[in-house]
């Protein structure tokens, strides 16, 4: 036995270390994911028996005009959310100083991520309110009136996504803060010796070291942009008349309000495929870069 262990431990220890996480994740999350794909091939109300319908849910989805509205809105969300990593990095750079009081300020930057989504949604509703909102107060100073953003089919999605961006920036800030504290001091020092400063230092010395964190930040931002539905639920309930729904909200509505779990699962599967495609593409780039560095 000891001999067997000695001969094989170079691979057995890693395997044993990997196992608990993998088993738990596989048992709970991956199993549920596969079941989702399975459900999407059925007509099911979430309670009774499932009826096999093959690809009918997908066929219906392809013809559902609401699906394309949601898809378009998800792209808008994605584009707006892409602001979160750079702004989060900016905040992280600002607060990464050891000065008295900085710890409290750092904690405050983090607060948006902590607040209950319901409350954040309601408060942003008060920003946009056409009668008493903050925007109207500001516009009012100049004698103008704001458009009612949340009831305008062209603006509602932008307004909601902007509200969703607020906690997302805080999320990215925490990630970059951790990343900045994992920088290799030797490389920074070498850069300083070479006379690199400010923007050039950031661009050529710091950012390459942050590429791993950057990957996390972008991945979670994509997930956040595609998966979030609660902000939509609180601020517009998808309105006006469905013009601000996103795929996740449409799925929520179909499965929870309309009792169509099969159709909801089909939307989820499509959402899943989009995200996987994006992440696979991005992951390849990352792994390739890692290999060329090693």
């Amino acid at each position: 036995m000891p001999r067997f262990w000695r001969r094989n431990r170079h691979w057995m220890t890693p395997a044993l270390l990997l196992l608990p996480g993998l088993v738990l994740f596989g048992l709970v999350i991956l199993a549920a994911s596969f079941e989702t794909v399975w459900i999407s091939l059925h007509d099911w109300d979430g309670i009774g028996a499932k009826t096999w319908v093959g690809l009918a849910n997908y066929v219906e989805l392809a013809e559902d005009p609401q699906f394309y509205v949601s898809l378009k809105n998800n792209i808008i969300w994605l584009l707006i959310f892409m602001l979160a990593p750079p702004i989060g990095l900016g905040f992280a750079l600002i607060v990464n100083q050891k000065i008295r009081g900085m710890r409290i300020l750092k904690s405050l930057f983090f607060v948006p991520l902590v607040l209950a989504t319901v409350t954040v949604g309601v408060v942003f509703g008060w920003v946009y309110d056409p009668n008493y909102g903050l925007l109207q107060l500001i516009y009012g100073l100049f004698g103008g009136t704001t458009p009612a953003l949340l009831s305008d089919e062209n603006f509602a999605t932008f307004a909601v996504a902007a509200a969703g961006l607020w906690p997302q920036i805080a999320f990215c800030m925490v990630l970059f803060l951790a990343g900045l504290n994992n920088l290799d001091e030797d490389l920074i020092g070498a850069g300083r010796v070479d006379g690199a400063r400010g923007w050039r230092m950031l661009r050529h010395v710091v950012l390459p070291q942050l590429s791993q964190v950057g990957f996390i930040a972008i991945a979670v931002t994509v997930i956040g942009a595609l998966r979030s539905f609660d902000m939509v639920a609180v601020m517009t309930t998808g309105g006006p008349y469905g013009s601000s729904t996103v795929l996740a909200y449409q799925m929520y509505e179909e499965s929870i309000f309309s009792y169509r779990f099969g159709y909801g699962a089909a939307i989820a599967t499509v959402l899943f495929v989009i995200m996987i495609a994006f992440i696979a593409w991005y992951l390849r780039g990352l792994l390739r870069a890692e290999r060329s560095n090693a």
Partner: peptide, 21 residues
């Protein structure tokens, strides 16, 4: 990739499989 991908599923859909588990 599985670890990353498993994060993406919307919760409402996993609700019933996870509850049954």
């Amino acid at each position: 990739a599985l670890f990353v991908g498993g994060n993406f599923l919307p919760a409402q859909i996993m609700m019933i499989p996870v509850r049954d588990l």
